Simulated scan of single mutants.
Amino acid sequence: MARLEDALDFKLFERTKLGLTLTDRGATLQRAVASGFGQIGDTIDQLKRDHARGEIVTLSLASGFAALWLLPRYADFRKRFPSINLRLQVMPGRLYGPLEDAELGIRLHGPGSESDPSCLCPEIIVPVCSPNYLAESGPLDAPKSHEGHAYIHLDVTTHSWADFHRATGRSDQGIGEAVHHTDPGLAVQCAMLGQGVVLGWLLAIAAPLNEGKVIPAWDRYIETGCHYVLEYRSSNPSDGTRHVARWLIEQLGEEVERARRLLAPMKAVSRGRIGQSAHKTDARDCPMH
């Protein structure tokens, strides 16, 4: 203590007959030291709480994919990665643009992106409906009723029913009842309930297709040549982020492969039929939802 007082060049204690008592300066220093140790303790407690909660990984994705594929598999994800908290950042519309504060994001890339190791799924657009609806109403090109089909429309989309009809060479005349939705996941769920035919993006409808909840309403689908790719915000992602990415690539890859086998007997119509250049590589030139 004497050496500390020598270094500070002032007294910390008064030596009295009753023992040592703090000087005014000593008391001031004691309060500062106590406060510092308190802050250190609070910080350690916070770090312990953060560690117990686990790492938070934010994933930027489309609502349809979140509702129809990811959320039904979240319990399995939690069992495999109990220390990772997945935070979903749902995009209302087009899957392009910066990730901002998300560690991972699904984005649409142009032709040639299928070679990316983080490629998840080709952009394939399939008219789908429930099995009961198809049995009662017939296929898209041969409705059983003269009133035609009930078309479920997405009001926020870059590939409409009119685009689909132009690409496949069908007339859009004779379209029956029209139902409009702004959320892709809700639109597909309405089709699953037998309320009509909807254009489904393979990224979102792979699971319902494999489970038989929806089936193709015709033997044609659109293949745009674009692909959905999993992007990283950082060039040096955390271990938790890598775990999430690896899980998504593996699990979705198996799902998409099964769905593509179901589509194999159908005829693919290329993006070029839509009247857009097949050589552009900007994702914003691809039809998206």
Rank of each mutant, 00 (worst) to 15 (best):
P127Q: 01
P127L: 04
P127Y: 03
C129K: 11
S130R: 09
S130N: 11
P131C: 07
N132T: 13
N132D: 15
N132I: 12
Y133S: 05
Y133D: 07
L134P: 05
A135W: 11
E136P: 12
E136R: 13
P139T: 13
L140D: 04
L140K: 10
D141N: 08
D141F: 08
A142K: 15
P143R: 04
K144D: 14
E147V: 15
E147C: 14
G148H: 03
H149P: 11
Y151W: 14
I152E: 00
I152G: 00
I152N: 03
H153R: 12
D155R: 04
D155E: 02
T158C: 12
H159Q: 08
S160N: 06
S160Y: 06
F164Q: 01
F164V: 09
H165S: 11
H165N: 09
H165V: 11
A167C: 08
A167R: 10
A167D: 09
G169H: 11
R170D: 00
R170S: 11
R170Q: 08
D172P: 15
D172C: 13
Q173E: 12
Q173F: 07
I175R: 10
I175M: 09
G176L: 04
E177C: 08
V179K: 06
V179D: 03
V179M: 10
H180A: 09
H181K: 04
H181S: 03
D183Q: 05
D183K: 09
P184N: 02
G185V: 02
L186I: 13
A187P: 04
V188H: 01
V188P: 02
Q189F: 00
C190F: 12
C190G: 00
C190W: 07
A191V: 07
A191C: 01
G194Y: 02
G194E: 00
G194W: 01
Q195A: 05
Q195G: 00
V198L: 01
L199M: 01
L199E: 01
L199G: 00
L199K: 03
